[in-house]
Design a protein around this nucleic acid. Structure first.
Lengths: 249, 249
DNA sequence: ACCATGCTTCCACTGAACGGAAGGATGGGC
DNA sequence: GCCCATCCTTCCGTTCAGTGGAAGCATGGT
């Protein structure tokens, strides 16, 4: 049942972080469409500004589409309220500061502040990572719907480094810890060179709607020294969200 | 000639910054579609994740669409490279720091850092403003294709405050100034309470690909004192862009 | 000169999209 | 409780927009 809408969206979904610029033929293959059909769709999308074509003939996602995407409440509303707090946290730590939300069974990074002296991390605004291997993921998983939690723990968990925790029982213990302490510390579970300290951000009704983290180099820095600042920032954002008129789904 | 693609995009375009959450009927009206058609399209978009539906039945832009939008090179590539420099600039000034690009005859804001002590401005990431009334706009206009410049100056220019410069001749003079000094200072032209200091960001081939600005309160602060920092930041980003492997259209 | 690769245009067929209309669901006024 | 208003959902026969194979064009490598 190939509806036109689905095809249009498949074309958009053909772009990815590692291949953000595609030729028409690549696009057609990735979207699973005949060349002539892809040609027409892409033409319409380009005319509207959803895609743009550069001099070399490759297509990439256009600014108009980015603009529409920027209206997503979980991005726009959250960012706007959180930014001053993230800024403060960055100024105190001078490390990568990240804000992420839960979507499906993954973490989606919504904002990241990084300075020249921060560790280079491979997360990216708009990027996804699994829940079990990141600080923000552990926080979101710890406060998620139990049904989702079980589903995630039941599935096979990808190992990124020798330190990645893939054992459901141990993860369960860690999640309980996160709930009692209010912070998660993920040490080298995604990249050995970095560790992250994360805390939950709550919406007006008390649900956890996001998580923030500071990523610090794993060079002997004591992660616990960051806990108070991270926790305070998360509380600050939660309070600001409660006062703001923005709503979250 | 209502192609399906156009309809899908019209549905997406129905959302705006002041109305980011719409009911089905509102959407149908705004997109100019019969209710039943809107119903089907919105259903397909929601199934894919381009739209999301909240408990109150309203629709809003979904995270999946935001993710795809985040792949736009002018957003992603630019942001990634510029962030550390913007961060530095924020730390020095503690004011709103903005990064914007040119699209059509308008400025589009790509990133904004704001702290608790910054002036509250009404620009917004993903938002648009005209070229003649903002600092970044003047910079982008000054270095734009002459054909575009003439077109903008020929069109009627909206007045936002008593200080907005709407006279083509005077604007032309200001733009020449911007080209020689390398910075633009827009004083109260969009809001009386704030002024901005802007400078051009250049891509690998020397073209101006973006502009950055610092927005400061118009309370007697001397804008000229910000010029060196803004200029240095813009230069830093330009240099970093030249070294990076990202390309810009 | 030839072929390979990738893009663009054309056009006859067809089945997916269309939208009017009817049927639910909810809620609020009286 | 009843009615009416508003908004959402489903249905289905008609039709016309979307489809995609094929042929033509542009480039550039050998």
């Amino acid at each position: 049942m190939p509806t036109v809408t689905a095809r249009v969206l498949d074309v958009l979904a053909a772009f990815s972080a590692d291949r953000p610029r595609l030729t028409l033929s690549e696009l057609a293959v990735r979207a699973g469409l005949p060349l002539s059909t892809a040609h027409r769709l892409v033409g319409e999308l380009t005319a509207w500004g959803a895609l743009e074509r550069s001099d070399d003939g490759r297509y990439h996602v256009g600014l108009r589409l980015w603009e529409v995407g920027a209206l997503a409440p979980r991005s726009l509303g959250l960012r706007e309220t959180a930014m001053p707090f993230l800024e403060d946290l960055y100024e105190v730590t001078r490390q990568n500061v990240q804000l992420a939300v839960l979507d499906g069974t993954e973490v989606v990074y919504v904002e990241r502040l990084s300075g020249r002296s921060s560790v280079h991390v491979f997360t990216r605004v708009g990027g996804r990572l699994p829940l079990h291997a990141t600080g923000v993921g552990l926080v979101l998983l710890a406060h998620a719907d139990p049904e989702l939690r079980e589903r995630v723990l039941a599935a096979p968990l990808r190992r990124y480094t020798e330190k990645t925790v893939c054992d459901p029982a141990e993860l369960r213990r860690m999640l309980a810890d996160v709930r009692t302490t209010g912070v998660a510390i993920s040490d080298g579970q995604i990249e050995l060179i970095s560790l992250s300290v994360a805390a939950p951000v709550r919406g007006p009704n008390g649900d956890v709607v996001a998580a923030l983290s500071v990523v610090v180099p794993a060079d002997g820095t004591n992660p616990h020294s960051f806990v108070p600042a991270v926790r305070a920032t998360a509380r600050g954002i939660s309070r600001a969200l409660t006062l703001s008129e923005h709503h979250f789904p």
